[in-house]
Design a protein around this nucleic acid. Sequence first.
DNA 1: GTTCCGGCATACCTCCAGGGTATGGCGGAC
DNA 2: GTCCGCCATACCCTGGAGGTATGCCGGAAC
Lengths: 290, 290
Amino acid sequence: MPEPEIRELRYFRAVAEDLNITRAAERLGIAQPPLSRAMRQLEHRLGVDLFDRSGPRLGLTEAGETLLKESQPVLDALDSAVRRTQRAGQSSGGLVVTAKPGVATEVLHRIVTELQGELPGVQVVVSGFGEQADMVRDGRADVALVSRPFDDHGLETELLYTEPRVAALPVRHELAAREMLAPDDLAGIPAPRWSRANVAERNYWSARPDDPVDGPIVQDSSQLLEVVAFGQAVALVPQSMAERNIRPDVVYRPVTDVEPYQMLVVWPAGSRSADLAKFVEVATRRSSAP
Amino acid sequence: MPEPEIRELRYFRAVAEDLNITRAAERLGIAQPPLSRAMRQLEHRLGVDLFDRSGPRLGLTEAGETLLKESQPVLDALDSAVRRTQRAGQSSGGLVVTAKPGVATEVLHRIVTELQGELPGVQVVVSGFGEQADMVRDGRADVALVSRPFDDHGLETELLYTEPRVAALPVRHELAAREMLAPDDLAGIPAPRWSRANVAERNYWSARPDDPVDGPIVQDSSQLLEVVAFGQAVALVPQSMAERNIRPDVVYRPVTDVEPYQMLVVWPAGSRSADLAKFVEVATRRSSAP
DNA sequence: GTTCCGGCATACCTCCAGGGTATGGCGGAC
DNA sequence: GTCCGCCATACCCTGGAGGTATGCCGGAAC
């Protein structure tokens, strides 16, 4: 009967990834023959050939490619379900909310203060850049404050506030003499890239999304300003970050027509618990830039 | 180790749904003791109590409620993965595309004709109202033509075209004397509800989404016009449907300020195969109301 | 109170399937 | 030719899923 078990999917993924049953078996900590048999059995259950065993090297059929892609969401959903269930059982009520370091934590602090008494046990987790959405998706957190751009797969969002973004320039930069900049002025100048921490396949995104020129990689706002001060890049940062980071070697200049900085509350799609609803309500109640 | 298997999730769902292990065991076709043990084992694996066994009746703990909600996406994703894999293995290339009866099929026909030669083996499945999105989600179809409103969970969409909607009135209706209607004129008048075929928990949606007054239930456009002709309801229908269904006992009148009828192409999020891309491209290439 | 019963847990058995070892087959490298 | 990497087959062993029998407990009926 076509009812694959989770174990089989994990096995399949391991085999499909390095296309070598023997090595996959090692990685999985089992012997080769059982894995070989498990794959045949999986094929038999689905009634479909997953592997192309004709060539010298093991290959994936069309169906195999499909299953490899499609099994990921299943495993993710399962991990997420397990985490959320465990969290629901252990934590005696109370939300886990996450935000990246910087502006978001200040906003978060205000929200949490405001929630005192209304919601017991709100737990704040400050996490790495770009990790917030993942944490909400996989159940490590109930709700997060994030800024655009981010991956909103499987999430629902509400806009918290927007604030203008300004260009952060080295004080001796030629553009620093100008009072106001246009986006075109920045064209061709490298932008720092935020590094996403703790992720297997490292990825980065630009501090100036529209700009294709990628500059040095930074992990927090102080590194970013350091890089700017050194003249290696020019970044667009939220106004409030500029106000909070006044240093002699960096100047901030308004830029016309740039997308404002957006801060959002995000939570897993379809999981509006009472506590979550209250959090979102308080968060959006009086939300202005700090 | 916390690694629940699919079987356990299905078992858990059965138990959690009728909160009676004995009956759940019957439904599952197994004996009661193994099921009882499986649930204890699941709790042990997750390290969390799922059931409240204190009361006279079996209850769900907070964690149990969570797992009940969270296990659904896992099972759905698995079923979807299996279907897609099997389809990828059997069908020798070619898309399955689905649309509800009526306007959509005509548009679809044009697209398919246009694809002749470019794509081999496009298979068209005409399905029940409101079922298209589900079919794409669970892998029974690769792509669908749907009209708003629909549930876009897990789907990506592209707008095909819009066309105005007009009110379908019984010919003797007092509003039939007017040349043009405003939304307020229809307030309080019942709207037909589309019935969703072949779904366990029946659900319906209104032919006039903004209107709260629900009228008779219909399953296709001829039933809808019948109901209108009988004076039981007034519906908003796409212009082209009006043009195609001229009958003596029904008149059509334009309505100011109504959301236009929107037709979209939808496909599973993140699965842009070459064939699919070509279909979407051709579909949107020259898309005007029929 | 006693009795009965619905419903879950415990005890114990059976048997299959998941995992192991040993070994064969097969194609490519040399 | 020989060797080697890699998968499949054959066979054994054990854990666990599922079965039956039965005990325990709380509520309802009286």
